[in-house]
């Protein structure tokens, strides 16, 4: 099942959740039926003035290459696609927070990719879950890649982001944690991966929990000050989309040159995190699960998202 570019609209549009959800039927999720493209396009709002960065074609090409090159191990497509998606779809965080863009990509531009990448065995049978089409930033097929590239890159260097996306547990666990909104924290996590101090999926989860928990008593911003990214440089990079050609398929592209994460701050956190990770008692346990081992224990209340 492949989509040819003839069928596609030229520009990305905004597809509301309520419209997208309506067509996420069981047969669409199972891949037995394509989402009704015309109805979806009709239900979308155009982006305003056309611009190169809203062009569908380069994105579709990347997706096709990703599927071709990574069919053997589909999860590896994430590390390849994330930086290239980010460098091609040049948008602000404000724009990226609008779920309608991601709905449009998943439902209209590349529903085949969503199924290719995420179809799997579920309680309801062999299918993709709805949140891969319409969902939170760390679940939705394209949003999670874009945000991973955005949060783990170091200025214009996508290498840390590529590394982060090589580990599915980073994408699944770390990406949802608010602690990585602090750039030195995100950079330090990848540094631990680079150093090989953290290897397995279990390691990543343990590290994530340790950092997330210690954030209840440590103010990372004070231990490891960040410098605010240069908004003008980013703006320039976005505007340059008009002149940019397609990204290289073999070399990493360059991201917005909005400033590197301060090295001293990263070093400090690497030291701290390594220590937290080494001291975490639960890490020694062979049982993969954290906690008492009883599931459905109930929920914890109050302040599930706190800046500190």
């Amino acid at each position: 099942m492949s989509t040819t570019s003839r069928d596609l609209p030229e520009q990305i549009a905004l597809l509301p959740d309520v419209v997208a959800s309506r067509y996420l039927t069981h047969s669409v999720l199972a891949g037995r039926e394509r989402p009704p493209q015309l109805a979806l396009i009709r239900g979308s709002e155009p982006m305003g003035t056309p611009a190169a960065r809203w062009t569908v074609e380069p994105l579709r090409q990347l997706i096709d290459v990703a599927m071709r090159r990574h069919d053997g191990d589909r999860a590896t497509a994430d590390a390849w696609l994330a930086p290239r998606l980010h460098a091609t779809l040049r948008i602000t965080r404000r724009e990226a927070a609008d779920t309608r863009i991601w709905n449009f990509l998943a439902m209209v531009v590349a529903p085949d990719y969503v199924l290719w990448r995420h179809k799997g065995v579920t309680k309801e049978g062999d299918r993709a879950t709805t949140d891969r089409f319409v969902g939170l930033h760390y679940k939705q097929t394209f949003a999670r890649l874009w945000w991973a590239a955005e949060l783990f890159r170091d200025g214009d260097d996508y290498e840390p982001a590529r590394l982060a996306c090589e580990n599915q547990d980073v994408l699944n666990t770390m990406l949802r944690l608010a602690v990585i909104d602090h750039r030195p924290t995100a950079r330090a996590v990848v540094r631990l991966l680079e150093k090989g101090l953290v290897r397995t999926g279990r390691d990543v989860n343990a590290l994530g929990t340790a950092i997330n928990t210690a954030a209840g008593t440590l103010v990372y911003d004070v231990l490891a000050p960040d410098e605010a990214p240069d908004a003008d440089s980013r703006r320039y990079w976005i505007d340059e989309a008009e002149n940019a050609g397609p990204v290289s398929l073999d070399n990493l592209p360059f991201g917005p040159d909005d400033g590197c994460v301060p090295g001293d701050s990263v070093d400090e956190l690497v030291r701290r995190f390594a220590q937290l990770f080494a001291e975490a008692p639960v890490r020694g346990k062979e049982e993969g699960r954290i906690g008492t081992g009883r599931s459905n224990e109930g929920v914890s209340l109050d302040k599930t998202y706190s800046p500190f």
């Binding site: 965080r93 404000r94 990226a96 927070a97 930033h137 945000w147 955005e150 949060l151 608010a178 990585i180 909104d181 602090h182 103010v219 911003d221 004070v222 605010a228 998202y305 800046p307 500190f308």
Partner: peptide, 13 residues
């Protein structure tokens, strides 16, 4: 330390 955050853009200033 003052911090301005917004969950939907993962922003932290």
């Amino acid at each position: 330390l003052a911090a301005l955050t917004e969950a939907s853009t993962n922003a932290r200033a």
